[in-house]
Amino acid sequence: MKIKLQNKIAINIIRIIAALVVVILLFLLGDILISGVPHISWHFLTSASQSFASGGGIGVQLFNSIYLLLLTLIISFPISLGAGIFLSEYAPKNIFTSIVRMAIEVLSSLPSVVVGLFGFLLFVVQFQMGFSILSGAIALTFFNLPLLTRNIEESLRAVPDLQREAGMALGLSKWRTVTRVILPEALPGIITGVVLGAGRVFGEAAALIYTAGQSATNIDFGNWNPFNAASPLNLMRPAETLAVHIWKINSEGVMPDASAVSAGASAVLIIVVLLFNIFARIIGNSLYRKLTATK
């Protein structure tokens, strides 16, 4: 009897804790969305921000965030793909491999503000890249690399060894087996990881304050020459992202509608990150279904 009671109490405590997590999330989301969504309009999403007057939007910041995210992925994906393949398929059990593993672990536990400061000192100052999208993208790469590498390694590892043997037994080299058999099979997991990582990168602020900068220069959306300073594609222009914008408005915003802009921008940020999460699930599941032909 006593054991049954204990069991009951324990299960209920665990249930309450689990429910608490959901309640906290719902409360947070609800609060941000309720106060922010009313401020979202087409004008808000597309127009430039204002420093002193009210009625400013987040168009440039939104574009910067997306552009920076794409650049980060372009830089970090190939590197982590290579590192992930090495760690899962080729790495021998030796000191070198454990050093690589430890490096990835340390990198993933670095506070993002430290990564930002490092990027500031090295890229912005030492390499004279200035506050620029490129500096920001490299800083975010440091941030994204360990997550992505771990994700790719684990996705590859999850493919059964039988598949490797199948490829080898048909006379394929190890490399061809990895690229043509193992990688496609690991793809759903990899894509899910990339999209989830993208959500985290999208919302990152601390690493960008000192690297991509805090000013949204006026950019001309009619000019797509990446070498022109006013072009949205220019890599060397400072680029305030959505998350940095929110931080800045709340710390030093002087426009009359600062709190409204901040609430609206926060809501947009949360919605985009949520969309990333939902997309990750949908893409992962549908790819998995397609590969395994289960309905």
Binding site: L162, A166, A169, L170, G171, P184, L291, T292
Partner: peptide, 15 residues
């Protein structure tokens, strides 16, 4: 291995 083929214990078709 193209001349000496192998089939394994558990079926392992490619996806």
């Amino acid at each position: 291995r193209k001349h000496i083929g192998m089939v394994f214990q558990r079926p392992n078709p490619f996806s």
